[in-house]
Computed example of a mutant assay.
Amino acid sequence: MRHLRARPCSPDPGRLCEGPLWDPAVQELLWVDITAGLVHRGSLVPFADGSGLPDLLPRVTLAPGGPVGAVLPSRSGALIATVSTSVVRIDDSGRCEEFASLPLFPDGVRRRFHGAACDPHGRLLAAAMPSDTTEGAGSLYQLGPDGLRVLLDSVTLSHGLGWSPDGSLMYYADGATGRVDVFDYDVATGTPGGRRPFASIDGGAPDGLTVDRDGSVWVAVRGAGQVRAFAPDGTCHTVVHVGTSHVSGVVFAGPALDTLVITTATEGLTRQQLDEERHAGRLFVCRPGTAGLPAVPFDDLVPQETA
Rank of each mutant, 00 (worst) to 15 (best):
P197H: 09
R110N: 11
P294R: 10
R75L: 14
C96G: 01
T290F: 07
I201H: 06
S93F: 05
V155Q: 09
H241A: 12
G208R: 06
A205S: 15
L79M: 04
I80A: 01
L104Q: 14
P73Y: 04
V211R: 01
V88P: 01
E135M: 12
I90Q: 02
L104T: 15
G225C: 09
G136M: 11
G14K: 00
R213Q: 12
S200R: 14
Q273E: 15
A137C: 08
A70C: 15
T35S: 12
H3F: 12
A307T: 13
Q304C: 13
S248H: 03
S139T: 12
L152Y: 09
F113S: 02
T235S: 13
D23F: 00
Q273N: 10
E267V: 11
T189Y: 02
A256T: 12
L157P: 02
V155E: 09
G14Y: 09
G94T: 02
T264G: 01
V296Q: 13
T290M: 11
P46Y: 00
A6D: 07
R89S: 15
G193R: 15
E305F: 13
F298Y: 12
E277H: 08
P130K: 03
S76Y: 11
V251R: 06
S101W: 09
V32H: 01
A188Y: 04
H40G: 08
H237L: 02
V302H: 13
F47P: 01
A224P: 06
C96D: 00
A256L: 13
T134A: 14
T61V: 14
S168I: 00
L151K: 07
L72I: 09
H279W: 10
A173Q: 07
G223E: 07
H121F: 08
G167I: 04
G94C: 04
E28V: 02
G138C: 04
A81N: 00
A173F: 00
P24C: 03
D153F: 00
G66F: 00
G108F: 02
D186E: 15
S154M: 09
G292E: 05
V296F: 04
I262K: 05
D212T: 05
V302C: 15
R41K: 11
L16W: 03
T270L: 09
L44C: 07
W31P: 04
L21S: 03
R112V: 12
I90R: 01
F105W: 14
D107Y: 13
F183N: 09
A188W: 02
V182Q: 12
I80D: 06
R2F: 12
D299T: 10
R112K: 09
D202Y: 10
G65L: 04
S51M: 10
S74R: 08
D212H: 07
H279D: 15
V45Q: 10
A280P: 08
L16S: 07
G52E: 07
G115N: 00
H237Y: 15
G243D: 10
T134L: 11
V39W: 00
V285I: 05
F230R: 00
A173H: 08
V180L: 04
L257F: 06
L102C: 03
V221I: 15
S245A: 15
I34M: 11
G215N: 01
S154D: 14
H3C: 13
